[in-house]
């Protein structure tokens, strides 16, 4: 799906959140000089095409006690990687799951899964669950804990034209 300038304005207006008001889409429409029905229809089209992944709240997992996370990485047989990756991604404790190219010899891993838990010990238990799920299709694995945030800036759309 290609998004047009009006879609981009809707994205820019809502990417930091929806207004907490009884008719939030009407409010966004008012800011942009559009009809409520058009805003709803465009958001629905973007959701159907995957531009919008979901309309939801994002719990702060740190606030809810999930303070430990690790980037688990797996060398999974290529023939099974799509199927097994889908199963790993579906786990409730995995927040990101990707296939990426290997960079041998330094890096033999092709499946990346970010694991969240309440402690490092819990993260290790969850990692063992993934290892059991992958079984013999996985030749090697590792987990990388972040030891320091060196930079963190939001990736935000401002205005393509601007």
């Amino acid at each position: 799906m290609t998004i047009d300038a009006t879609d981009r304005r809707i994205i820019a207006a809502t990417q930091s959140g929806l207004p907490l008001a009884p008719a939030p889409y009407a409010e966004v429409a008012g800011w942009l000089g559009l009809d409520e029905a058009e805003v709803i229809a465009r958001l629905a089209a973007m959701q159907a095409s995957g531009v919008i992944r979901r309309i939801a709240l994002a719990p702060n997992h740190y606030a809810l006690g999930m303070v430990a996370n690790g980037m688990s990485v797996w060398d999974v047989d290529d023939a099974q990687a799509m199927d097994l990756g889908a199963q790993v991604g579906a786990l409730s404790f995995v927040s990101h799951c990707y296939l990426r190219p290997r960079a041998r010899p330094a890096w033999p891993y092709n499946l990346f899964a970010m694991i969240h838990g309440s402690s490092r010990a819990e993260v290790e238990t969850l990692r063992a669950q993934i290892a059991a799920l992958l079984g013999d299709a996985c030749r090697a694995n590792d987990i990388l804990y972040s030891t320091r945030i060196l930079k963190k800036t939001g990736m935000r759309l401002t205005d393509r034209e601007g």
């Binding site: 809502t14 973007m46 995957g50 531009v51 702060n60």
Partner: peptide, 19 residues
């Protein structure tokens, strides 16, 4: 919940590459 920091955001989540 937002004021207390229990949620970080409420609204549409966009696919960065799709944009």
């Amino acid at each position: 919940l937002r004021d207390d920091g229990a949620i970080t955001r409420f609204g549409p989540f966009f696919d960065a590459e799709a944009m």
